[in-house]
Design a protein around this nucleic acid. Structure first.
Lengths: 235, 235
DNA sequence: AGAAAAATGGGTAGGTCGTTCCACTTGGGT
DNA sequence: ACCCAAGTGGAACGACCTACCCATTTTTCT
């Protein structure tokens, strides 16, 4: 039961206060590899794959990150910061409606850029207490933003913070389904959703054109398989 | 809506012309079980689970349906008929816009009612030639519907058949994320999408209220796990 | 009723995944 | 430079899924 890892200063999610130099190096290698794999293949990549790709033994990974959630927490900490920053930036915009539109687009773009992050945002991942804390803070700011945007009369009064969650889930679905075959499809979804949020007469960014006619239908051949094939690229 | 599906002349997928009586009985038991499991847990339930739940040996399942796609084909044949029928019904509506709205709602409701079917619709499942054929026919009718609805001036001119595909993918995402915890969330998404499709001034069904405030956040604790736990219900 | 063919299900082999244990290597304080 | 503990990777284990083979049971035809 010796856990020297948390003996000294486990405040928050510090990398590793009492970690040996090589251990810390391995830790970072693991996180970097996981970030890459999660981004391209979504969460659900097996721990074994990550360990293999990072060039460490499975035991090492398990020791450093006991559960998958712990690893996810470490991987997406900075993305969560960016997420929170997006709200701050939107609040700084002198035009709340413009800020709102930009925020929605920015967050959905983050989802599109990182399949793993899309899952994190859409699925309220269970563990990751630290992530939840940051999310809560961002959420609070978002409520402000909604309020101000509504005050301009250009965001419909029936828009709710829940609608943003719904959009995140919907966007995750589109991103997951289209994959690499039609990577810009999500923009059209977001454009249409914004249209639905906007009060009549509000200015809107132009609607993204539909992807190449056949692209969508050829897109989602990946079927149900959630995890990437083990013999994929994994670097 | 009468479906003499199994007795006389179903469209396309004859059950088993030269099957022994007990074999045919088992076949139907398998299909029924698969339908139930797929509906509740989505595609991706293992063949072994289905065989176990149906009370037949794995070999029996494998012999009757060599590939997973074959089974899916048999399971969703009638749903696909319903899908096609929805287009026909929409086309029969004297008001094309009203028909269009009803069609969108009906198809999305089908997705919500059956997680497996949601996957089939959203993912253009690879195999299942027969399903594809039916889908193609329905698709053709849908193009007609769009044309007519646009002619009324109430469906925006920039709506594309691809938008329906996008909606199906987005809806699948919402349904997958909300699960059983907030089962009506998809209705709000559809309502907002319809709002985006509608030309200014077009009549729209009232927007579904947001689900219970906390429901969404407590909803998707299921994380990434695609297949149901083996020790679930499969009763 | 009896026999042949059809159909069944359990067992085995080969694969993945996650966890745990253990002998070896390596870092870093002294 | 030394030496112990922190750290490592691989092996072993149990659980799961797919695919296949074959002895046994059941249906159906004569």
């Amino acid at each position: 039961m010796d856990h020297p890892a948390d003996a000294s200063a486990p405040s928050g999610e510090q990398p590793g206060p009492g970690l040996r130099a090589d251990a810390e190096r391995n830790r970072e290698r693991i996180v970097a590899t996981a970030r890459r794999l999660y981004a391209s293949h979504g969460l659900g990549v097996s721990m074994a794959c990550i360990a293999r790709a990072a060039g460490v033994g499975k035991a090492t990974l398990s020791r450093r990150f006991a559960t998958r959630e712990e690893l996810i927490n470490a991987v997406f900490a900075d993305r969560m910061d960016a997420y929170a920053a997006a709200v701050a930036e939107a609040l700084a915009d002198p035009d709340p409606w413009h800020g709102f539109v930009g925020y929605v687009q920015a967050v959905c773009a983050m989802q599109a850029a990182d399949r793993g992050f899309a899952d994190v945002l859409a699925m309220t991942f269970p563990a990751a207490k630290a992530l939840e804390k940051r999310r809560a803070a961002a959420y609070h700011g978002f409520l402000d933003l909604i309020e101000r945007a509504k005050a301009t009369g250009r965001l419909r009064a029936d828009f709710t913070d829940q609608d943003m969650v719904i959009l995140l889930m919907a966007n995750a679905g589109v991103i997951a389904a289209t994959g690499d075959a039609a990577p810009d499809t999500w923009r059209r979804l977001v454009g249409q959703m914004l249209r639905a949020y906007a009060a009549p007469g509000a200015d809107l960014p132009p609607l993204e054109p539909t992807p190449a006619p056949t692209a969508l239908y050829r897109a989602m051949v990946r079927l149900t398989r959630p995890a990437p094939g083990p013999g994929d690229d994994l670097g």
